[in-house]
Design a binder for these strands. Structure first.
Lengths: 196, 196, 196, 196
DNA sequence: AATGAATGAGCGTTCATTCAT
DNA sequence: CATGAATGAACGCTCATTCAT
């Protein structure tokens, strides 16, 4: 069973920079070619390192892609935690979370989409699923405040709903996030039974 | 000019059975391995035919996958059309559509999921997109009756929402559709603003 | 060791017609696609018979191509024999042979060229080489009359020269046989030391 | 855009040796099996490298064969240029060119033959045709000195004649080049009308 | 006989991965 | 540490050939 964890902890600055370059190269190829056409040789070339170097930091191709996924998800989770930490009221918090989700998905929409498609074929690690659960848990924590008797799966459903609407919009060519935001808010409020 | 249409119309009964066997084998591999690991040789083997036979009916790998997609989508669309034809009231129609979606998605949830992920990489034909639009149009037609001033994208969003909740549930291990149905109805009613 | 002889002697008229259709179809494909792209299935289709029928008359692909070659060479040889039979003087005979060669090559120039390229890869039968030798012998017979002390290989060389000039001309895009004829006559007379 | 140019410039010595080994292996297979039966896997195997290595240097099978062709033609052209550079009288130059052609063709006669048959199916590049034209131009330049009113196609014809006689001789089993040389000189002188 | 569905060896090619330098 | 030449399993696909109907 091959691991999808990086090989080195990158204690040195240079190594860190190399790893980041590799991850960003992979991200860019994911954006431009989709997951099926991405090859490790291309990633290395675009990152400006040799293929041997790539394999010194990542044990295999999946590990590189997983690193991209991790980087993106970590950013989203950090945003969520920031919002929670702000201690706004529950409704404002929910609104902020929705906006953060939308903003995240629309920063690099093709990348977000590509990752979504690749994720289920990736065989991720326990820690990755843990982060997913943590993200849902953050939402659940807020949901319980505004809708105490909501379904236990409400948070999961809400995250799924937001992603689905955003992705579908992106895929059908919508390029204006401000046209999507109200639909997300409406979908979430509606699901939770909050009066709009 | 690479088309994704089958090669022959399969006039003989044997040929028809062969084509169906190939499609079903592809569907099963999609379920068990996902699209990335599906190979034409495996499809042929699982279908119990030689690789040459597969290529006598489908011009390339994509055509085989497209045939699976078409089979599934056609079944869903037919279900929708049946429901519409029944001429129930709009609310009952919506309920029936939701249930049909759930049933369809839950019959072979891993297949539905895999197809969803593969579809955008498939370069489908005009007729396939036409079917997609027809499906959304059917929904839009009903939506407009219960929510005349709904967003133009409402139908698209609703289909996405239902699929997302169902898929997420399936992926997180939920096996009981009756636990999902109320959440779908709630999400849809909520999005459309039909009472609290 | 597979034979390249037809399978049946085609006693019946229908069978003869079928075989001729197959040979002509192969000839046409040789002309339009060259030997590398010719497939037995295409030959059968163009001939209007099933692939099974083709294999009932010819044991393999090479046999079909060899049949084309045979047909063409037999025609050329027959022309040569006609000319010899006419009993003209040796110089006129030589001129007539040259013109016949040129005419033959220019009737279906692409076919002649394709056959020339395929012939050495064909592993022909004894009888085929016998016909080649017979053709050269016919020429040698005339050559000896006009140049009694010519090299023993003179006839072989002359046939090769005529084919080479004609083919090179055809390949370089020359379409007018009347521009080639004088060069052939000059090359032959020159080689034989006849005063022009 | 499929080019038949090599992929890398082979900066390291090892790479250069690998490329040469591949080309030589292809040449040997061309000699022993002809172009139709040559496969990239066999070439790689005979060259003692893996199939992947072959494709690191040549983008496709045609490129490998084109490299063989280029190597041979470049050698012949270089020989011609050497002779021209020697500045002999025109008749001696022609004699030298004929001998060079014969020597070249007889060094590896089966290879020369195979290449001749493969060339037209190869879809060569502009530069390759340029070299062909240069070779014919060199000959034309000398021809014009000894036969000022020769046909414009004389040089082309002469090259074709020499090749044809030599190939035919080689194919019919002649193994002694000294028996061929006088026939070539006679054919050329005769075609050009240089004394009897 | 004639058909054409079926076969499967084998082709050209890719690309994740290794390891000598 | 980095390089990049080399590897080779495995892929998508073709096509000569067979054989049940």
């Amino acid at each position: 069973m091959t691991s999808h964890q990086p090989r080195k902890s990158a204690q040195q600055g240079r190594a860190k920079a190399t790893m980041a370059a590799i991850v960003e190269a992979a991200a860019r190829l994911l954006e431009t070619q989709g997951g099926a056409r991405l090859t490790t040789n291309h990633v290395a070339e675009l990152a400006g390192v040799s293929i041997g170097t790539l394999y010194q930091y990542y044990p295999n191709k999946e590990a590189v892609i997983a690193a991209v996924l991790r980087r993106e998800k970590a950013a989203l989770l950090a945003g969520f935690e920031d919002i929670i930490a702000r201690g706004l009221g529950p409704k404002s918090t929910i609104d902020a979370l929705i906006d953060a989700t939308l903003a995240h998905q629309y920063t690099r929409p093709r990348l977000a989409l590509a990752l979504e498609y690749i994720e289920p074929e990736l065989g991720l690690l326990v820690e990755d699923h843990a982060r997913d659960r943590r993200l849902v848990a953050l939402v659940a924590q807020v949901v319980i405040e505004v809708a105490p008797d909501a379904d236990a799966r409400a948070a999961q459903d809400l995250v799924a709903i937001c992603r689905a609407i955003t992705n579908t919009a992106a895929m059908s060519g919508e390029t204006d996030p401000t046209a999507i935001a109200p639909r997300l808010h409406r979908a979430v409020s509606g699901y939770l039974g909050l009066h709009a």
